[in-house]
Design a protein around this nucleic acid. Structure first.
Length: 266
DNA sequence: AATGGGACCTGCGCGC
DNA sequence: TGCGCGCAGGTCCCAT
């Protein structure tokens, strides 16, 4: 899904476009994605609310509404939002009183929307570890020392460090010159500090470029992000490493496709 | 407790 | 052309 940079981009754009707007109409085209409350109750509670603020926690988007309600959106793998006119393929459609429309798009139906009184009490929010920005390199090195899983699955584990997914994990490991298969606790302090620094750098770079549109994902206005052209290893199997010219290799690591440079990443 | 594999979904591109 | 398979940016559930 959208990882931290994509969700941050959506958050910024949403703030600009729907803050203070009032919900006039709601259409649910796929019940599956509306987890709570179900069906008509969701519609009934959402209609008439005004958007107060938009927040993000790791990869979770939180729309704060009047009447002490929060619309919590987890985009998972294939969810995205499109603002403008009503879309035919939208799973959920929210129309505002100025006749503009926010569409929830999600080809794979794995994402979820929840309308609730709080968001901090949700289990998956409570369990989230800090975002890379919220700790320093030394904290990160201590975390890596304690774990035996591969370093790639560690940085993708939201309960340990949050916001990183399969694209930016690969990118940061490439920039830090660390082989994704390495055991977390085999990293030297120096390597861990370097990885932490690169995680922050790549997330910031991706935010600056409005995220990666490697498949259907688009920014709120429908345009592509700009980060996909800048990716160093993700999706570059068989192509030349930008640093050394070696062919980029692809393996499966804890069930996820993983590209890296055998020569650069030790 | 920590770790890895499968399940949840749809649709695309590829090889035969 | 048509079919089956593998694969896709995430996370939960389960067995070990």
């Amino acid at each position: 899904m959208p990882e931290l940079p994509e969700v941050e981009t959506i958050k910024k754009d949403l703030t600009r476009r729907i803050k203070n707007k009032k919900v006039a109409e709601v259409k649910i085209n796929k019940n599956k994605v509306v987890k709570e409350p179900s069906g008509n109750k969701f519609k009934k509670e959402l209609i008439g609310k005004t958007v107060k603020n938009i927040k993000r926690k790791a990869k979770v988007l939180i729309i704060e509404l009047s009447g002490n309600r929060f619309l919590v959106i987890h985009l998972r793998i294939a969810g995205w939002l499109l603002y403008g006119e009503e879309e035919k393929n939208a799973r959920v459609v929210v129309k505002f009183s100025d006749r503009t429309v926010l569409n929830y798009m999600d080809q794979r139906l794995l994402g979820e929307l929840r309308l609730r009184k709080d968001y901090q009490d949700l289990d998956f929010i409570k369990r989230l570890g800090p975002e890379p920005f919220e700790i320093d390199g030394s904290d990160f090195a201590k975390i890596t020392k304690k774990r035996n899983a591969s370093i790639k699955s560690l940085i993708m584990n939201q309960n340990i460090i949050s916001g990183i997914g399969n694209i930016y994990a690969q990118e940061a490991l490439f920039l830090a010159k660390i082989n994704p298969k390495r055991k977390s606790n085999s990293l030297s302090r120096r390597e861990a500090m370097r990885l932490h620094k690169k995680l922050i750098e790549v997330l910031k770079e991706a935010i600056k470029h409005k995220g990666s549109s490697v498949d259907l994902y688009r920014v709120l206005g429908g345009q592509k992000g700009g980060m996909e052209e800048r990716l160093r290893v993700y999706g570059r199997e068989g192509k030349k490493c930008f640093a050394c010219g070696e062919k980029i290799k692809k393996i499966t690591l804890s069930g996820r496709g993983t590209c890296f440079c055998l020569r650069c990443q030790k």
